[in-house]
Design a protein around this nucleic acid. Structure first.
Lengths: 100, 100
DNA sequence: AATGTATATCGACTTTTCCCGATATGCCAA
DNA sequence: TTGGCATATCGGGAAAAGTCGATATACATT
């Protein structure tokens, strides 16, 4: 886990918001069809709509968060679903408490 | 504590290093004269020398860290001493565990 | 095979960050 | 009060991040 990379990923209001939305997908994305939040998460399009930013920006943001190991993706057909990677958050907590 | 601001402050290798140095000042700054690390911390010049970056850059970095509430400063004569603000780190830990 | 939909990638432009050197400010000593 | 340090601030140039629209890719449906 690259420290600078993870903090950069967290240095943006929209990306922080996305992480927060993904904490309770059923609440924040009630319109996702065939929702299977536990297993796969939320698809890009839903996040994009809710964010109000462009499709390309959100796609980019999601890969930044993924490179930082804060979320995971699963491709199902033409959709890519993203969900939080709680192991990454645990590692981040340890980093803050022990290394910073 | 502004979330984006604190993560931006942490998004830089040199600034992370400074925070780490300030964890054990006696080890990292053995040459500081009249060291009173517990009370005031380490002065700008010592940090600047150790970092290898310019004086203006380090002064700037220290105020970024201070605005993020991660360090405190004390002015004594012509020196400004900086030390870690452990309350800020505690708050950051809480942020990660509870809000992110 | 052709079309439609979801996502990723590309190219461009703007804003922010990274650093520097030069200058200003504040404090101390002669 | 003049000169010398320590630090802060200013102005700028280069690199990175933010954000978009356009295009490419990948899959699904007809």
């Amino acid at each position: 886990m690259d420290q600078v990379e993870v903090f950069k990923a967290l240095s943006n209001k929209t990306r922080l918001q996305i992480l927060n939305w993904l904490k309770s997908p059923a609440t924040h994305f009630p319109d996702q069809p065939n929702a299977d939040f536990e297993n796969v998460g939320v698809c890009v399009g839903q996040i994009q709509i809710k964010s109000g930013l462009s499709q390309s920006t959100i796609s980019e943001y999601l890969s930044i968060l993924q490179r930082a190991e804060l979320i995971n993706s699963t491709r199902v057909g033409q959709w890519t679903y993203y969900k939080r990677n709680e192991e990454g958050f645990a590692e981040l907590g340890k980093l803050i408490n022990q290394e910073l």
